[in-house]
């Protein structure tokens, strides 16, 4: 089963939930950190035997000798990443998202597939035998999605393995790409107007992907009750509430998953998983 953990708002506790859940469940667990801008899962765990693999994106490789100045590539390119001039051809890699249309549109076969590195993926084994895969986007690189895909491609093909995906915040392409293909999506929120607003955006997005949704309310007790009434009116189950606690916040500050110091939480995470599995497991 693949469970993705997402939220519209950042800092609601996605990574904390993903890591604590992974450390609490029985059986083989794989934890994928798809927040490749700012991967944090590995900062809460100790990783061993890390393997690093580069991630590339498609870019055009232009043979200027073969170019007949048709400018078909210039006219096709949706991002204006190619310039053809008298003194040469310029390609602007940071604007290219690798659709390959320039290659198809060239009448002279002057363009072929090249590649450009965007970042890396790390794979290793962490505490409790949890396998962790995370991506690291190069600094200054706008294109996160290919790195997310490269992390997801390393998901275990074995159905016995429970795959937990920690997603990036927001509701646009990186989050959609991370959640896509999951069996279930847990949205983590906090009971404040910010949390509610971004939860609504996230629900609207995940519903388009036709993936069942449950909510975890983190820092319960702060704020107001509007998240609860929203979930009730939308018939979204609240799977778990994690109360606002200075102790949990301080453990997070130290980089310690709180379930390791507060073992009474283990059964709560197991129950959370059972609720999801009973309804949506395969």
């Amino acid at each position: 089963m693949i469970i993705s953990i997402a939220s519209g708002k950042g800092g609601t506790g996605k990574t904390s939930l993903a890591v604590n859940l992974a450390l609490s469940l029985p059986g083989q667990i794989q934890l994928l950190d798809c927040d490749v801008d700012e991967p944090n899962v590995h900062t809460l765990l100790s990783m061993k035997n890390e393997q690093v693999k580069p991630v590339y994106t498609l870019v055009p490789e232009i043979d200027e000798q073969k170019c007949n100045q048709s400018k078909n590539c210039v006219n096709f390119c949706p991002n204006h990443a190619i310039f053809v001039g008298k003194k040469g051809i310029n390609f602007f890699p940071e604007l290219c998202y690798g659709c390959g249309g320039c290659i198809l549109s060239c009448p002279n076969q002057a363009i072929k597939e090249g590649k450009r590195q965007l970042g890396v993926t790390h794979r290793g084994v962490a505490n409790h035998g949890v396998e962790v895969v995370y991506g690291n986007l190069n600094i200054g690189e706008p294109l996160a999605v290919p790195v997310i895909k490269a992390v997801k491609e390393q998901a275990s093909p074995n159905n016995e393995v429970t795959v937990i995906i920690d997603c990036p915040p927001g509701v646009s392409c990186p989050m959609v790409e991370s959640v896509h293909g999951s069996d279930y999506c847990v949205l983590v929120t906090e009971p404040t107007p910010f949390g509610l607003h971004d939860l609504q955006l996230a629900v609207d997005t995940i519903r388009q992907l036709k993936i069942p949704i449950g909510v975890v309310v983190n820092r319960s007790g702060i704020g107001d009750r509007q998240v609860y009434s929203y979930c009730k009116s939308e018939q979204i189950p609240i799977l778990l509430e994690i109360p606002h606690s200075r102790k949990i916040a301080e453990l997070f500050a130290e980089g310690i998953p709180f379930v390791t110091k507060m073992p009474e939480w283990k059964s709560q995470f197991e129950t959370l998983f059972q609720m999801i599995q009973e309804r949506y497991g395969r």
């Binding site: 950042g10 700012e38 927001g170």
Partner: peptide, 11 residues
């Protein structure tokens, strides 16, 4: 600004 360091943050 947005969180992260990719396209939205760079923009």
């Amino acid at each position: 600004g947005p969180p992260g360091i990719a396209c939205a943050a760079i923009s």
